[in-house]
Simulated assay, not measured.
Amino acid sequence: MTELLTHTTRPAPPPTAAASPAKAPPAAPRGTRRRLGPGRTVPFGRLIGPVLVIALWWAASATGYLDPRILSGPGTVLSTASDLVSSGRLQDNVLISLQRAGLGLFFGVTAGVLLAVAAGLSRTGEYLLDGPLQIKRAIPSLAMLPLLILWLGIGEQMKVTVIALGVAVNMYINTYASLTGIDSRYVELAEGLDLSRAQFIRKVVVPGSLPGFFVGLRLGVTASWLGLIVVEQINATSGIGYMMFQAQQYAQSDVIIVGLVAYGIFGFASDAAVRAVERKVLSWRRTLAG
């Protein structure tokens, strides 16, 4: 018995070097942790890319690598833009284009959000609306141009409708996905607190759907400009796209570039405005975007 106890209580021999586990890497000293995020934000950092593109364009034009018959240089484009502003032609076309894009964006956002709320908060609405809208997502709005021209003609109503359709689909898809992605525990908590329908929408639905709403809004803004470019080149008599189409017939690449720059500036500025509002409204979130 004593021998058994002695044998069982004998300490185990130390592990050999081959059997010893690998040593863990030394922990980094405090204050020197490896940063895994994208880094700090730089004020107006998003302008670095466009400025670099313009600098390369200017350098290629100045050194003769860029044929002005194919693509006019920045100096020529600036001179053309100044002439268009002096004659008032650019301002008139820009105002008409902004009106079309603004109306299409307004109607598209309104329709998309209302459809998403109806489908996201009601099984009946989901069964009736989600299927047709998913089918519409697979059909580009531009593919419906012949039918819309047949129904609405070639006037402003058709142009605004094409823009609104593209915006509405983006708004619906993202807002609906955000609504249906709300954690069911919040719904159960609202039911446990005996919240009314209005309180449930205000305190649970709206905050939970805002991230998807802003994603859809950014895509909708982009869709409004894409739709505008197309509809303004179909039997239009005004707008930036019409100005570019007329310049194409006379091989005026400088006027075409002025129109493209105008589209780019408005698209960049509108997206930046939406991002600024999003950061303000969703300031409670901590994300990699900063």
Rank of each mutant, 00 (worst) to 15 (best):
59 A>V: 14
157 Q>D: 03
55 A>L: 15
203 K>P: 05
127 Y>K: 06
206 V>L: 15
77 V>D: 06
233 Q>C: 10
3 E>Q: 12
146 P>V: 08
136 K>N: 03
208 G>S: 12
274 V>T: 09
246 Q>W: 11
261 V>W: 15
21 P>C: 09
201 I>S: 09
6 T>A: 15
283 S>T: 15
226 L>W: 05
258 V>A: 10
77 V>C: 10
144 M>C: 05
152 L>A: 03
161 T>P: 04
208 G>D: 03
19 A>C: 12
81 A>V: 10
173 I>G: 00
277 V>M: 13
89 R>Y: 03
226 L>N: 15
239 G>E: 06
240 I>N: 09
212 G>F: 13
79 S>G: 14
180 T>H: 00
4 L>Y: 10
153 G>T: 07
27 A>R: 02
158 M>W: 05
72 S>D: 01
88 G>W: 07
70 I>P: 05
55 A>H: 03
201 I>L: 15
60 A>V: 08
207 P>C: 08
180 T>I: 09
258 V>D: 01
288 L>M: 06
54 I>L: 15
244 M>H: 00
271 D>C: 09
122 S>C: 08
215 V>W: 11
279 R>H: 06
173 I>Q: 02
115 L>T: 07
84 L>V: 01
119 A>N: 02
197 R>M: 10
119 A>P: 02
154 I>D: 04
144 M>P: 10
262 A>F: 10
158 M>N: 01
271 D>L: 11
24 A>F: 04
88 G>D: 05
261 V>A: 15
73 G>C: 03
224 S>C: 13
202 R>M: 11
88 G>E: 07
287 T>G: 11
9 T>E: 11
168 A>P: 04
